[in-house]
Design a protein around this nucleic acid. Structure first.
Lengths: 169, 169
DNA sequence: AAAAACTTTCAAATATTATTGAAAGTTCAA
DNA sequence: TTGAACTTTCAATAATATTTGAAAGTTTTT
């Protein structure tokens, strides 16, 4: 396989993976491009390589920066902005986890807390009890997941590898 | 908060969570409905409760059955099919992990294996080497995640809880 | 064997989400 | 302070994903 072909395939697959996981396809493609680019890239280059518009490139690069997956860098002598991608896959993993944890898991836990406070009357006592029990259980699991993810998000890769090796052996 | 209101909110939130994670909103809502319903439900009841069409209900219930999150059950004396949801959140977690692992992670690992075999010529030696290195690294992490998820998918909740408690303390 | 009761399919319609590109905004050198 | 070089915004448009519902398929009863 040719290098350009392999790169293209990686970008497409990574984009598809992202879009199946609720991350917009283009953002994932841009991220893929940065993962396999050793040089700094300008917005211009991203646009050209992926054949996307200026607005689209700008918006998604900005989100990638928010997530900590891409960094802005200034090239001396150049007016325009350049970017480089975070190459360390462990860091990438941690940052994706963090972003989604605060965007989705945390709000869900908040909702679970709210709906736990449902009040019963004579007629629906049993239903309310069953509902509360189930929500409590879901919330406990969600909180466990939250703690685990928080821990992962703050760990050194080495610690994690060692611990996980024990876990899965 | 009223019970019906709390249930409604749960269904909506679970649906939203699903749709942010690449699971179609209605499928997640149906799943939510099953999670908080103690009785068996017919396709009819699902349609009415969620105000969705027959085709939609059918297709998503079928997928939930594929994933192992909902079971078909026959009611004696009744001609039509009834369903019940898997209530055990640990099992739900395991089955969602398994479904997505085979749908997305495994194909991604396959692609990474393929694109590793890119051949170099004199001109692009260095680029090819860098590309291979990065893909190898991504693949190693993907395989680690795959192993961990496989282990989780096959574990007793108790074992997992104990191990994870140590992990996150 | 036919009809009734139910489930499944799938092309068309709808809803949702992402993308474009021109205009507005910003920064900076002169 | 202007204008060139660049970035950001956002309403209109396009692409994608989901939903509908009627028709076809299946199973059971009469």
């Amino acid at each position: 396989m040719k290098l350009t072909e392999a790169k293209e395939k990686f970008i497409q697959s990574w984009g598809g993976l992202g879009s199946n996981w609720g991350i917009n396809r283009t953002m994932a493609q841009i991220h893929a491009l940065f993962l396999i680019s050793d040089e700094l890239l300008s917005a211009e280059e991203v646009m050209e390589t992926l054949k996307i518009s200026r607005g689209n490139a700008n918006m998604n690069i900005r989100t990638l920066i928010d997530w900590g997956l891409v960094y802005k860098e200034y090239q001396s002598g150049e007016r325009k902005e350049f970017f480089r991608g975070e190459k360390d896959i462990w860091k990438v993993t941690q940052r994706v986890i963090k972003a989604r944890q605060r965007q989705e898991l945390d709000p869900m836990i908040e909702v679970l807390s709210q709906i736990q406070h449902v009040d019963a009357d004579e007629k629906n006592k049993k239903d309310v009890a069953a509902f509360k029990k189930q929500i409590k259980d879901i919330k406990a699991h969600a909180e466990l997941a939250d703690k685990a993810l928080t821990k992962i998000g703050a760990s050194e890769e080495n610690w994690f590898l060692k611990t996980f090796m024990k876990l899965i052996k």
